[in-house]
Lab assay of single mutants.
Amino acid sequence: MEVVDPQQLGMFTEGELMSVGMDTFIHRIDSTEVIYQPRRKRAKLIGKYLMGDLLGEGSYGKVKEVLDSETLCRRAVKILKKKKLRRIPNGEANVKKEIQLLRRLRHKNVIQLVDVLYNEEKQKMYMVMEYCVCGMQEMLDSVPEKRFPVCQAHGYFCQLIDGLEYLHSQGIVHKDIKPGNLLLTTGGTLKISDLGVAEALHPFAADDTCRTSQGSPAFQPPEIANGLDTFSGFKVDIWSAGVTLYNITTGLYPFEGDNIYKLFENIGKGSYAIPGDCGPPLSDLLKGMLEYEPAKRFSIRQIRQHSWFRKKHPPAEAPVPIPPSPDTKDRWRSMTVVPYLEDLHGADEDEDLFDIEDDIIYTQDFTVPGQVPEEEASHNGQRRGLPKAVCMNGTEAAQLSTKSRAEGRAPNPARKACSASSKIRRLSACKQQ
């Protein structure tokens, strides 16, 4: 084909351009004929944790799935940006308080904090938690009735009371019990989460009196709706648990309003109706937990002794299953770290194939690490110290990083047969305790 000078094309009309061969290198194709290559998922490591896909996002930050490269346990990490926390009232204080509380709590029905990582340079905090497959609110939203069968609701409620009793025994008032803060594992274990607005009572406090509340409006008791200066913290949790039980068994809320002012007005009056299909035992329990006067409201001991709580409820309806993943529609909620794991395991070791967030990740503290002497050669063979940054567990980050890069360049065919977990650990520049 004859090559045409581009400067001469402006002298031709459209018809003349076609005659000189423009149609031979300008093609129009339908979008259905285009085959897009999927974007390669680059592996990203935060300390010893391999990052997966997004699980959810809230006002405080994002939650992603991660894999512990040492234990191969599935975890969830809450990623918090200090810049964003400053824009939220009491944001930083709530996060630090939640970390302090979770560090000393150990119960099967309370979410466990596994690790805390802090990135000084990017001003990011990573709260590594045990993995929960789904939230209770997500399960309720997945069915038209917006409720659980009585047998399933009873099982979840009993676990909620177990976890709540443990928190109260530790002198902690949750203040925000609701389905949105109750998570579930694949085995059906309920976990109380989000202790950001919780309050730890003084060890020598005479009672459970509280003065502040930041919980969700629909789950607040009349004493808070009416603006009382002080109130019983434990009875606030009992009320919120009662509203939660009402919601998961009926699909409704005892109090509603077009806006928060109308909602608080209705809560302050204390008038509500219980659907007739709840039955006398459940209705009596709800009335005891939603008692207007805090002094007359049920205690956890009274809830445990109630006939509806103690009764064994046979399954009359099919239980609400864990819904498919909202993004991938995966009904099994498979591990989202698998594509990243395959990338590390299947590809040659190259620095361009993975990302390490930083050479140094500070753990379990908000301060910069200490310094240790770096050896410097002298005339008599002895070495003197220069400062060298280290990880919180004493690992020399720069030395590990250099060693990792040197190993990656060394030709050794046997290394390709290593397991995925050992490869992740070798790529991680800074081991965590």
Rank of each mutant, 00 (worst) to 15 (best):
S216F: 00
P373L: 07
E16A: 13
Q159V: 01
T395N: 11
K78P: 00
L286Y: 10
V66S: 05
G268M: 02
D277F: 10
E374S: 12
V320A: 13
P373I: 10
A406Y: 06
H345L: 08
R415S: 13
R383I: 14
V116W: 02
M125P: 01
K416W: 03
A377T: 14
D330I: 10
L113E: 07
E14A: 05
R87S: 06
D355C: 10
E145C: 11
G188S: 06
E357Y: 11
A200R: 04
E223Y: 06
R405H: 14
L290T: 06
K96V: 03
I99D: 02
P315H: 10
G180W: 12
P373C: 10
M136G: 00
E351W: 12
L102R: 02
F25I: 15
E407K: 13
D348V: 04
L182D: 01
I161G: 01
S169H: 12
E98R: 01
S31H: 00
N94P: 08
V34R: 04
L353D: 15
D258G: 12
P179W: 01
E65S: 13
N226I: 02
S69Q: 01
I238C: 11
M51R: 08
L386N: 02
I356G: 12
E349N: 12
I111M: 05
D68S: 09
S232A: 06
E65I: 04
D5H: 07
I322M: 04
F298A: 13
E396M: 12
G408H: 15
E374L: 08
G385F: 10
L54D: 07
V133I: 09
L80I: 05
N94Y: 03
E57H: 13
N266H: 09
K64Y: 11
S299A: 11
T13S: 01
H313L: 12
T71L: 05
A273F: 06
Y261L: 03
Q364V: 07
C73G: 06
Y261A: 09
P323C: 09
Q214C: 05
T244C: 10
E357M: 13
D258S: 11
K431F: 14
D162S: 09
V150L: 02
L80Y: 07
E145G: 05
I303V: 12
D327S: 14
K423E: 15
Q112P: 09
L286N: 01
K175Q: 08
A318I: 12
W239T: 00
E121I: 11
T244H: 00
K97E: 11
R75M: 00
K178E: 00
Q159H: 00
A205W: 15
R74V: 03
K78S: 00
I248S: 04
K41E: 11
D343I: 14
P38Q: 14
K269H: 12
N259F: 09
F148W: 02
L353G: 13
M22V: 07
L17G: 13
S404G: 14
N247D: 04
Y166V: 07
S193A: 04
C151E: 04
L117V: 03
L183P: 01
P314A: 07
R297L: 00
L55F: 00
V20D: 14
A200C: 07
I79R: 05
D208W: 02
T244E: 00
Q123K: 01
S193W: 00
L386E: 13
G251T: 08
K403I: 06
E376H: 05
E256Q: 12
P281F: 09
E145N: 12
K84W: 07
Y340D: 02
M139E: 01
V150P: 06
M289Q: 01
M335D: 03
Q220R: 04
I303N: 13
E342R: 13
V173S: 09
E57Q: 06
P281R: 05
M289P: 00
R40K: 06
P369C: 10
H306I: 04
L290Q: 00
E16K: 01
K178A: 04
G56W: 00
V236A: 14
R415L: 15
P254V: 04
L102D: 02
V338Q: 13
D350W: 14
A389G: 12
R383F: 08
D350S: 02
L290I: 06
A347T: 10
I300V: 07
L286D: 00
L55I: 11
A198N: 03
C151W: 05
S169Y: 13
E265C: 15
K423I: 09
D359L: 13
L140C: 02
E349I: 06
I161D: 00
T212V: 02
S271T: 08
K124V: 06
H154R: 06
G288D: 00
A377M: 13
P144E: 15
L386W: 07
P315N: 13
Y36H: 11
L286A: 01
P373A: 07
C210V: 06
F366Y: 09
P6M: 03
P323D: 10
I88L: 09
V95E: 05
M392S: 13
S19L: 04
Y156Q: 01
D358I: 07
Q220W: 12
A347S: 11
F148S: 00
K146N: 08
E374F: 10
D343Q: 06
V110N: 03
R87P: 09
K122C: 12
I322H: 04
V173F: 05
A398G: 07
K44F: 10
I361N: 09
Q364S: 11
R75N: 00
R426C: 07
I248H: 00
R86P: 10
G257Y: 14
N226W: 15
V197L: 06
D258F: 04
V77I: 11
L167F: 06
P149D: 03
A406V: 13
I360D: 02
Y126M: 03
F354T: 02
M125I: 07
G276R: 10
M392A: 14
V128L: 05
F157M: 02
E199R: 15
K287N: 12
Y261P: 07
T13R: 07
C132Y: 03
L285D: 00
C134T: 15
K235Y: 08
D53S: 13
A316G: 09
L282M: 01
N380F: 06
K108F: 06
Y340K: 14
P319V: 04
D229Y: 02
G47R: 10
I356E: 15
I303S: 00
E121Q: 07
S401G: 06
I248Y: 01
Y292L: 02
D30W: 10
